[in-house]
Amino acid sequence: MKTIHKIFTVAILLFISGGTIVGCSSTKNNYTAATDVQEEFKMEKSGAQMWGEACNRCHLAPSPADYNDTDWSTISLHMRVRANLAENEIAKIETFLKSAN
């Protein structure tokens, strides 16, 4: 048990310290040329589609009309962390909910 715990502890500490360094480092994108072209042709899901997929993973998808824009921004931040949703996913869902309420 001790050996497992030591290996596990070191792995977790390395992950946290490495992740923090990466997370707190500059996020400026130095290579912009190629990605701009790719973005132009990328087919992306709509916020409505993501709302149907992501929310239903745990509970029934909420009615957009049940909350106002202010409430949706609070709920979106809460759900982003609680359900561990990707940033672009929750951003699109929030935009959809605010547009459809």
Partner: peptide, 19 residues
């Protein structure tokens, strides 16, 4: 706790580590 998620261009990965 540290947690987050990555969009892998279709598939998604989420993680959480804590003490």
């Amino acid at each position: 706790e540290l947690r987050g998620a990555f969009d892998l261009g279709g598939p998604k990965l989420n993680y959480a580590v804590y003490s």
